[in-house]
Design a protein around this nucleic acid. Structure first.
Length: 331
DNA sequence: AACTTTGACAACCGCAATGGC
DNA sequence: CGCCATTGCGGTTGTCAAAGT
């Protein structure tokens, strides 16, 4: 026993509206209003349409002052910005753009803006990929470096079992130095990275050091996050935040170290959503990890950095333990 | 020229919220 | 307060034209 249908489906016309139907509806509503009952309206005016359909047609197409197509850059920015902060609340977004309907905005987002943002993102990736590539060359030349941190706030998950390849030592009461003297041992590095489930890094914009090493710090910290096995839910937002613009990096990493593909695919699935699920499928790997949404639930984090904060806050408790790099030396 | 794919837009569907009784 | 009709919303699907092969 379901709920009674809102109208007699058999006697209701579906599909595109004819000009005649439009005229009937428009004329009546302009003269009498919709009468406080959309369901009863079609019968009143002799339309074989569902009341909901009439309402939709009026609101999205016939009502005065509707603007179709030709979204300006200002409107696009506003839509992106609102989507970034409130998500797919199309009716609220539409209320901020006069003459636009929620349906129009939703369609515009799905068919244009989303792709536009992907395009921008890809461009950015390419830039970052070339940076990472040159960084890799540099790392190969200099397989030993030390990071001295002035504010290593949490390292509880640092894997002591990997001491053979990684050394941590307190330089003084305020500084901790992390030494990698075995970066040529790729398996060791990978093991280290894979076992750091909850280490993330934020980058201090005030870092004053030579550019190559700053890049190296970033790449290292990003790598640490990127290869973290992402458990259901808990790590997704973390990864999607910190990975901004580095989607290309996993392939580099694959080449760099031997990795269990499932772990990388799982991580990337959470980050990319559907597209990567397909890749994972093609690889024949397990893809049971549910994505956040089949549409672009989290696209905002790709481009609009302010969302980092909200995404970050949305993470389940206890995830990020922060290492802030403030000083560095390159040996 | 015929067929297929892609993109844009319109419309539908199902569910949750709202409000009257 | 609960029931039920109606409304509003967001996701999804359908349709059609343009572009590509």
């Amino acid at each position: 026993m379901g709920r009674a249908p809102c109208c007699d489906k058999a006697n209701v016309k579906k599909g595109p509206w004819s000009p005649l139907e439009d005229a009937k509806l428009k004329t009546y509503i302009e003269q009498h209003g919709y009468g406080g009952n959309w369901i009863a309206l079609p019968q009143k005016i002799g339309l074989k349409r569902c009341g909901k359909s009439c309402r939709l047609r009026w609101l999205n197409y016939l009502r005065p002052n509707i603007v179709h197509g030709g979204f300006s850059e200002e409107e696009e920015d506003l839509i992106c910005s609102l989507y970034d902060s409130i998500g797919s609340r199309w009716s609220i977004i539409a209320a901020q753009l006069s003459g636009r309907t929620d349906n129009d905005i939703k369609n515009y987002w799905n068919t244009r803006l989303k792709k536009k943002l992907i395009g921008k993102q890809r461009k950015y990736q390419q830039t970052q990929a070339s940076r990472v590539s040159s960084l890799r060359q540099e790392m190969k030349r200099e397989p030993y470096f030390t990071v001295a941190s002035g504010s290593l706030t949490q390292t509880s998950n640092w894997p002591s079992e990997h001491n053979s390849s990684v050394h941590m030592q307190a330089a003084n009461s305020n500084n901790v130095s992390i030494q990698y003297n075995d970066l040529n041992n790729q398996t060791s590095l990978m093991n280290l990275l894979l076992n750091n489930n909850a280490v993330t890094a934020t980058f201090n914009s005030q870092i004053a050091c030579d550019i190559p090493f700053q890049q190296e710090q970033q790449a290292y910290a990003i790598t640490m996050n990127m290869v973290n096995p992402i458990n259901s839910g808990s790590g997704t937002c973390l990864a999607s935040n910190i990975f901004q613009g580095f989607e290309i990096f996993p392939n580099d990493l694959r080449e760099l170290v031997c990795v269990d593909p499932q772990q990388i695919d799982g991580s990337m699935q959470s980050f990319y959503g559907m597209e990567t699920m397909d890749i994972a499928n093609n690889n024949g790997s397990n893809n049971n990890t549910p994505t956040e949404s089949t549409s672009w639930g989290d696209i905002s984090s790709f481009v609009y950095s302010p969302n980092l904060v909200s995404d970050y806050e949305g993470c389940p408790q206890g995830i990020p333990q922060t290492i802030t790099f403030e000083e560095s030396r390159y040996f």
